[in-house]
Amino acid sequence: MKPIEQYEQDLSSIRTIMERSVKFISLSGLSGILAGIYALIGSAAAYALIQYPLSITSYRQESVQPPSVIIKLIGIALVVLAASLLTGFWLSYRKANVHGTRVWNETSKRLVINLSIPLLTGGIFILILLSNGHYGVVAPACLIFYGLALINASANLYEEVRYLGYSEIVLGLICAALQGYGLLFWAIGFGVLHIFYGALMYHKYDR
């Protein structure tokens, strides 16, 4: 038998340990902000490619693009994705070093699995839609599946990520109802929302 204070300390010590054993705390809010900026740059490039000189909010009539334009769009999307992932990895690695932990541990493994299932499903689904010429549903499908992936992985991340996930899904559904504004919603969902929630997380956890 130990003194009662010891039992109190037992209880408070496991509270933090349980939380840390589930959450991947090395993800930096800065990654979100930078990913949002890349997405906005990518959207601007895509806008210049397919919509200019029409204004951003105007409805685009012409939805079928020549294959060369589609390939360029896919190229822009891949560059934005790669830049965001690399930034995320690099900043997490740096934050993990500061905390004295490793990036690749039980929580990050689970995080990757939980993110991948909805993302891969969505990715394959979107490729099938694209190959059938349904370009209009690509933007809402990206937002909705990304939102589902975030909610699925939110147990392993800070709670803000779950709200980001809800926001992406709502935005994706609105986008699905207003087809032709895909690029605008894509820029809001992947650009503005990332910057907003990234800044929120940075302010709360990283400073």
Binding site: I14, M18, S21, R110
Partner: peptide, 23 residues
């Protein structure tokens, strides 16, 4: 205390590896 802490990790997570536990 250490054993209580170990069990707390293992009841919240399905499984955990040695090195992550150590960390």
């Amino acid at each position: 205390r250490a054993r209580l802490q170990i069990m707390s990790v293992l009841v919240t997570n399905e499984a955990y590896d040695f090195n992550s536990l150590k960390e």
